[in-house]
Design a protein around this nucleic acid. Structure first.
Lengths: 173, 173
DNA sequence: TAATTTTGTAAGCGATTACTCACTTTTTAT
DNA sequence: ATAAAAAGTGAGTAATCGCTTACAAAATTA
């Protein structure tokens, strides 16, 4: 991948995540990336193609983030690691996560099955730990963590460390 | 309020909620409302003014929706009623809720304090019921319900009645 | 090295955007 | 009844949008 092509993707991710896809003009992306506007269309055909290239990159990354959980064999550690994920978000990855959550509101890019592997692993973990309704427990935990993640990304409120402990205690960790 | 002014608000709410604020053209709103485009600007000055008029209406409605909970005196009923709210969303009010949640991603319209009264009432209820960490419990419950509401609004997955029961049991209801 | 392909640019295109303005119709007030 | 105010229209506007095209530079292949 060319330097300029990569720069376009980086800048577009930042702008799409913070100012929205449709409100971000291709001219703005080009200016901020130090690139002619035409180059965007040379590499990605159209604006939508640029977004999809970003999403493809993101899906790859999503797999990497959750791999350590998916391959963990201790059910207690699966739960602990899952709970701690939203509290350990790296600020350099905020744009990545913001775009993920924003796109959920865009019909055609909302893919609820993207998190299926994590959900399945959590169900397994709760079953192992003797919970009676493991599926519902898994569902519940993903709901909680989604909300925490979103609140954190929006940045106006920070979720306290006390709450993290509170959660861990709820799950006997 | 004039009939046509009301129609503009109704149509704009529908379009903003389902297709997004910035992607919805004022010309489209006018066409769908059966009104000249100029009338929008006569009544609301600009597109942003139209959005803010809708938000103002919505805030009023938000107060009405949560009033029965805020004025409930039985702490158990406060919790039950709160949990059941996202399961009883009227389809005719989806647009209203969708816009609420979508706007949370728009910096200037994200007001986390909007739900403060509900949060405070929940904290009171959990205290009454002898929970040790009432504030965290209130926080947790609002997180859960936010996620359920969003999943429901997106419409691809429906949250089962089994999950509702599961939740009520968790809170001994 | 010569030919070909890929990467990059700049100017400009038609379409659409939010918005204005001159004007008419309807409602309200005196 | 009449004047003033408010509601409503439709044709325009400049600016911006995503995108194309003709061309040049750079990299790759032969």
């Amino acid at each position: 991948m060319t330097d300029k092509k990569e720069k376009i993707i980086t800048v577009a991710l930042e702008l799409f995540a913070n100012e929205g896809y449709s409100t971000t003009a291709t001219s703005k992306i080009a200016r901020k990336a130090g690139v002619s506007e035409g180059l965007i269309f040379r590499h990605f055909e159209n604006k939508k193609g640029l977004l999809e290239a970003i999403i493809k990159d993101a899906d790859l990354k999503l797999g990497q983030v959750f791999a350590p959980i998916i391959f963990e064999s201790d059910p207690k550690e699966v739960i602990r690691h899952t709970i701690e994920t939203p509290f350990n978000l790296d600020k350099s990855e905020y744009n990545f996560w913001k775009l993920q959550y924003k796109l959920k509101w865009q019909e055609e890019y909302n893919n609820p099955h993207k998190m299926k592997p994590l959900y399945d692993k959590l169900t397994w973990a709760f079953t192992e730990l003797g919970y009676q309704q493991a599926e519902e427990e898994a569902q519940l935990l993903t709901y909680i963590l989604d909300s925490i993640t979103m609140v954190t990304l929006r940045g106006k409120i920070e979720v306290s460390d006390k709450f993290r402990i509170f959660l861990l205690e709820k799950y006997n960790l």
